[in-house]
Every structure is written in structure tokens, then in C-alpha cells.
Design a binder for these strands. Structure first.
Lengths: 255, 255
DNA sequence: CAGTGGTCTAGACCACGCT
DNA sequence: GCGTGGTCTAGACCACTGG
């Protein structure tokens, strides 16, 4: 008689997980209505909802009032934060300035853009630690939302110590690109970066700014830039949604 | 009268989110029982459970029958896949072999170990693509579970083309370390790696093997190693839980 | 053994997307 | 307007953890 020891929720969840991983349900396919599933499995609708909530949080399903539930599909853009080829100068028409983001995205057949919002702020703890300043000290910030074909793909906030930012183009609004590199122009050429990456769930704010669905984690990418003297001159915190990006590093195996 | 437009679930969720972010509830603190919260907010227990489920999936709370709910705390180990200092030879007692993982973890005051399980398998699509072989072709695999103080911290599966693995120590069981590097010993010294990282939710299997709580995403780290001739000779897929690891890359800004 | 969270039901009404 | 998923309730019983 081999009784199924799992509970009803797991039984329904496993059923649809198997349907998806076996390919019987493909990306974009719509699931039956909750009530039909409940009837088929002889459970209440609440039980079905809990089962499907599990799969939604695993990133397997979409949700949405009135729309039904679909098997989720992903298409991923490559983001290569460790490669520097002065992309901003490649393929430029005279008088046209393309920044690295725009060029990077264009290379993959899509159209990138940025919304920039400069200003001052109190340094968050992560930033203060890395810049070696007091927590909550005033710093210059450039908050960017990076878009692809008009939809947000990343949040990227750059933090600069006050003394470095003062009187420079760092605080200029809009999507400025300085040929040769902004930090170099400002007298603090960066010779080394330290990148720290961690997967976590988005905050409520991040989720709404990036339009993230339930079950979408992000990579928090913290880049600290150092100049020749070894001083930390900039921290960039980038929030990279897992359903839109693969992050690529090329590593040479010099042992 | 400013009516609160949010629904009851969001109201309760926001309340406890604020308690946590403001520090009124600190890491490890226990929340009131569901029934008390329901009474205080004059909602049903089901509503409270949905609110707290949201916070759990955001990684803010623990759950657990009989235990109550606590504010979740994180302590993170640094993992630096892009640095090669022959750590396996540093600080060694004669006759003691320490692999890179063990040394890496020891440096941070903890004790690392590995469980290795070699064998053959059909190449998953990701692996086949990167090794340039047919999908489902036979490949050699070394499946590793990497532990810290006895608890699993990473899953790392290495895939080798058959012709490279045949008759080599690659297929030897146990935690072997080859001084100078296994791939070099086998005649395929790697000169370059390509690392691809992506945040996603764990599969059910990964979650149970790594003992992950709800609301814990992972980074899927895919490393492809190339030899002097530019041939892809190894693919390592590492599953890195977001609640246990920060991944670090040092990048030199040679433009 | 008391108290906690987990499972499950039945039913009601609402909000949104489509067509 | 129909059909979908989202919100919400009230109540019952179970399973685990801790003292």
C-alpha cells in the first residue's frame, strides 16, 4: 500500500515540479486554475495555493491576479565587470558618447540607458568601512538605474569621499561620460579593484524599483577601487537581479 | 482619517520589517507567538502567517515548529576563487597535505573538510556546452561537499572530458591533493578560467543537501578552465549559499 | 506536558486581466 | 462580465521543541 508520507502541500508541489523539470510543462505554459488543481488532487484550494507559493518562491512560476499562473522563463544578459576594453570609445560616431553600459548592452543586441541622480548622502556602514571613514560621514553619491530596452536591469550607486568629489564632474547630473575615465580625470586613477559578491533576497524597496517577481534573488556586488597610493577612492554597490544577469569574470591562472 | 490603503498582510509585514530594520528587534530575538500578533493587530492567525512568510522569504526570519520565530542572523565566510597562492603548501607540517579549501577556511579560524565522490555521469547541458562535447556524453565527475566545522558550506562538482580523466588520479576516491595542481600533473595545465556567476533559488535537492532555510538564495558559480591550446579541460559547478559566503575577486585595472 | 508553529478545511468576498 | 488569483476569516487537529 506504500502510503505517501509527504503532506498534501508537498505532494502537489512535487507534482508540478516534476511536470516542469520533465518538460511536460514548458516555459510560458499556463497551469490549470487553482480550483481545478484542488479538485483533481482532492484537496482544498488553500493547500494548492501553499504548494504553488513554494514553487513561485523557487522561481519556477509566475503569479498574478487575473492572469493565471505560468511556468517562468529567463533570458539572461551577460555582465562582465572585470573586463576593461575602453568600450566607450569603440564604434563611436563623432560627437556621440557611449558609456560602457550602453556599449556592453548594444553588443548583445539590446538597447541600454541610464538614469543618473547625483547628490550627497550619509555613508552607509558598508561604504564607510571600505572608504575608511566615519559611519554616516557625508559622501558624494551617484545613484544610477541601468535600463535595457526601457526596463530596469541594475541599480548602481557610486560613493566618493567628499574631498575627492568636490568641484569635479562627479556631481554633475545626467549621463556624462569622460573619455579616459572619470577617476583618472579627477586625479585618482584606480589601479586595483576588490569585488565582493553575495546572493541575497532583495529588500522591498529594491524589489519595487527593479520590478522583481517573488522568488527572484539578487547579487549584491560591492566594488572598492584603489588608487596608486593604495587609498580607497570609490565604492560602487550594484544590485544585480538573478533573473536578468549572468556575471562573468575572466581569470588568468598565474600561479 | 488617512486610511491605510495597504492590506492587512502588508501592514503586519511592514510592522515587523520596521521593527527589524530599526534595531528594536535584533538578530536572534524571538517574535511573539502568531496568536498574540493576531490579537494585537486584530487579524486572523492566517493573515499573520502570510505576513511572516513574506519576511521569512526575504531572509529576515527563521521558522520552525515548536521553536518560535527568530530574527535571522548571518555570519559570512570569505571565498576567493580568483586568487592562487598555493595555499595548499603554506603552513604545512611535513606529511600533512592541506588542500586550498581547508587552508582557506583555516585562515578564517574555522575548520574545513571535504567529502569527495568520484565517478562517471552524463554531461549536463551547461557542462557539455562548455566542454564542447555532445549533451549527455559520458564525463568524469568529482562531486564534493565542502564543510566548515562539520556543516555543509558548498557543493562543488568538477567535470572532466573522458579522454583527460582516463587513467589519472582524477577518479581516485577521497580527499587527494596533488602538489603543483592536479590538472598540471595530468598534462593539461590551465592558463585561463572563465567564471560565470548567477544568483538563483536553490533546487529542492540543493536545499536539503546544504540544509538551507527558506529565503536563502545561492550563487551558481560555473568555472571553465582552458589549457595552453585553448581547449576547455574542466568545468566546475559550485553552489554557494548566500547566507554563508561572500565571494571575492581581486581585479587589476590594466586598461 | 504546555506551547509553539505547521497543515488543512470551507467558505466568502475582492481586484484585476482579459475578451 | 467572466474567470482568475489575492485577501481574509474561524476553527480543528497535528508535530515538534523545550522545560
Amino acid at each position: 500500500m506504500a502510503v505517501d508520507s509527504r503532506n498534501l502541500i508537498e505532494r502537489v508541489a512535487d507534482h508540478y515540479r516534476a511536470e516542469i523539470s520533465s518538460g511536460r510543462l514548458k516555459s510560458g505554459d499556463t497551469l490549470p486554475p487553482e480550483q481545478d488543481i484542488a479538485d483533481q488532487h482532492e484537496v482544498s484550494r488553500g493547500t494548492v495555493r501553499q504548494a504553488l507559493a513554494i514553487l513561485t518562491n523557487e522561481g519556477l512560476l509566475t503569479s498574478g491576479r487575473g492572469r493565471g499562473r505560468q511556468v517562468r522563463s529567463y533570458d539572461l544578459l551577460v555582465w562582465e565587470p572585470g573586463t576593461f576594453e575602453h568600450k566607450d570609445q569603440r564604434g563611436d560616431q563623432p560627437g556621440t558618447h557611449r558609456d560602457a553600459w550602453r556599449a556592453d548592452v548594444a553588443e548583445q543586441g539590446r538597447e541600454g540607458s541610464q538614469e543618473v541622480e547625483p547628490g550627497f548622502a550619509q555613508a552607509p556602514d558598508v561604504v564607510a568601512e571600505r572608504l575608511g571613514i566615519e559611519p554616516k560621514a557625508a559622501v558624494a553619491v551617484r545613484r544610477r538605474v541601468r535600463l535595457v530596452d526601457g526596463t530596469p536591469y541594475q541599480l548602481a550607486d557610486s560613493y566618493y569621499p567628499r574631498d575627492i568629489a568636490e568641484g569635479t564632474p562627479i556631481l554633475e547630473p545626467g549621463d556624462v561620460t569622460i573619455p579616459g575615465g572619470l577617476m583618472t580625470a579627477v586625479g585618482h586613477e584606480q589601479v586595483r579593484y576588490r569585488d565582493e559578491l553575495r546572493a541575497r533576497m532583495p529588500t522591498k524597496d529594491e524589489a519595487s524599483r527593479l520590478n522583481l517577481m517573488a522568488g527572484t534573488p539578487v547579487t549584491q556586488h560591492v566594488r572598492t577601487g584603489f588608487d596608486k597610493e593604495g587609498r580607497a577612492v570609490r565604492v560602487i554597490i550594484t544590485i544585480v537581479p538573478g533573473d536578468r544577469h549572468v556575471i562573468v569574470y575572466d581569470v588568468s591562472a598565474t600561479s
